[in-house]
Every structure is written in C-alpha cells, then in structure tokens.
Amino acid sequence: MPLTRVLVGARGSTKAFPLISLEQLEETGETQVSIATIGQQLVNGVTLGGMYALIALGYTLVYGILLMINFAHSEMFMGGAFVGLFAFGWLDNYEFFTGSGFGIALMFLMTFVISGVVIGLLGVLIERVAYRPLRHAPRLAPLISAIGMSIFLQQAVLLWITPRQVPFPNYLPAGSYEIAGISINNIQIMIIGSSIILLIILDTFVSKTRIGKAMRAVSQDREAATLMGVDINRVIAVAFFIGPALGALAGIFSGMYYGSIKFDMGFIPGVKAFTAAVIGGIGNLRGAMVGGFLLGIIEALAAGFLSSGYKDVVAFAILILVLVFKPSGLLGESVVEKV
C-alpha cells in the first residue's frame, strides 16, 4: 500500500556523484517509498542510535569532567562484548539459567552486571594508570595516552583471545512483531528499551544523588567544586566506572544484535558515538542521548533513501552544519569566554 511517493536519487551509481541529480532520476526512475519503509528505517535507526547513545555517554561524562577525549572508550565497548561472551558461556553451563524464562532473564541480568562491573573497574584502572599521571599535562598528552591504551587493549584481545570474528550467542527467544507493516524484533525492543531505561536512570542519578551533583559541579567548574569540598578523584573514578559500564552493555547489545564480535569492533561505533556526543553538545548527558539517537536515525535514513556508500558523509555533513550554526552542539551551553 504505497501511501506516498517520494522521489529519491540514484542508488549509488558508481559512475558519477550519486547524490540526487536530474539525469539520474530520469535514468533510474522513481522509487516508491512507503510510510512502512520509513517507519522500518526509523526502527533500524533508533536501535543503532540506542547503542550510540550508551557509548556516547561515556565520552561525554569523561569530557565533561576532564576535558579529554577518551579514545580508549571504544575498547570498553569491545571489551564489554567479550566479557559478555565469556559470562554467557559460563552461565550456559548451568541448567538453572537455560531452563526457564526466569532463568534466562536472570542470566541476562547477571551477564550485564558482570560485564558492566568488570569493564567499569577496567575503566577506573585505566584512568589510574594512563590518565591520572597526566592530569596537569598539556591538553593533548592524555589524548595520546588514550590512543596508546586503545591500541594496547585491541592488541591484547587480538593476541590473547582471538584475532577472528567470533559468533555471539543470542538467548533471547526469537520473535518479531508487525505493526502497520513495520516489523520490530525482540532484540531491537530490548536494545531500545534498555537504553532508554539506562539513560533515564543515569539522568536521575546525576541530577538527584549527591555524587551525581558533585559530578555536575566538577564539570561546571573544577576549582570551585574542589573548594566546596568535592572529592575530585572520587568523582573522576565514578565517571570512569559508569561510562565504561554503559559502553560494555552497548557492546553486549551489539554482539546480540549483529551476532558476532571482533577485537576491532569498537573503532567505528566509537568514532560515531563521539560524533553523536559532539552533535548533542559534549559534556551534556542529555545531549549525548539526543545526539546518539539522532545520529542513528540519520544514518539509517541516509543509507535507506540516499546511498549506503554516502551515509557517513551525510552524518558528518550534518555534524558540520550543526556545529557551524551552533558551535557548542544542539544542547550544549555556549561557554562564555573568560577574559
């Protein structure tokens, strides 16, 4: 049931610049685009965006407090997936977990907790080893340290676990639902649902709890916060626990959704999530969420209706446009220059 007809450009002709051009439209004709297809692409985009948002939070938390791009954060995503793989593999041995629906739910919960805690602690450890000695160093020094750490972690997994792409189990009962021609499956529901719930929890945590308030205080003015008696090391440790833990969950989601994991799987989502954090206004938690979902949706729509080869160009072009017109991101507060 074609409810609407939209003209769309040539689908990735390699002979010429494949964005919309009149000749190409004549050559390839029109493509019928139904509401259902748009809706389906939105589902794809929101699922992807949920994962981006979870990762982006890690970038934005650290950036808000330390003003550094934690390049190693993409490896938290990857590490989370591998810890998740091992946790699932371990729990799978017990009849109790695989036997019933309740057991499976418990298995998921335990895997999330194990992976979140392990990677969260890894994040704290990395901060202690690689970033804390550099807290008063020139601004780009921690960036390089983070890149080194990222290379190290990738290589560690490559050498000590596997260089191959390995299958990731999916214990979620298969099932998909169709609403008005848009199908959505259990994993997508779980990813979208859990990411939104986690984002709400984090938002409440930051705005309501004592340590959350301390985090916001530190990100606004580190010195003033210190003067007010905020233990800055504790705040940093908490940020370096929460960010990687959320990244780890995104890694597990990614493993379940795409069915396999690999040591270099973090790189592209890492770059994208960082982009998402910047679109939303880096340092701003809600901005990271908005940016993540937005980027996921943009990518899905661009791949679906323009060209899969150019989807990243569309994403980055929108990023540049956002920044040109709103230099501190969508939800970022414009910083008043201190003179």
């Binding site: 390699t14 010429a16 540049i320």
Partner: peptide, 30 residues
C-alpha cells in the same frame, strides 16, 4: 566555515572532513 569552532569541536569537524574525503574517493566521485 569552521574557524569559529574551538578545541575539540574543531577536532571532530576535521575528523568528519577527513572521512568525507575518503568516502568520496571511495565512491568514485566525479
């Protein structure tokens, strides 16, 4: 166009620009 941007915002824009160039080359631009 990006001169107004500061610090890490500039970094991400240049990152995006680098990717755009690579992807355009990859897609046999022109």
């Amino acid at each position: 166009p990006v001169l107004r941007l500061r610090g890490d915002y500039l970094a991400i824009v240049t990152l995006g620009f680098g990717e755009i160039v690579r992807i355009a080359l990859n897609n046999n631009i022109f």
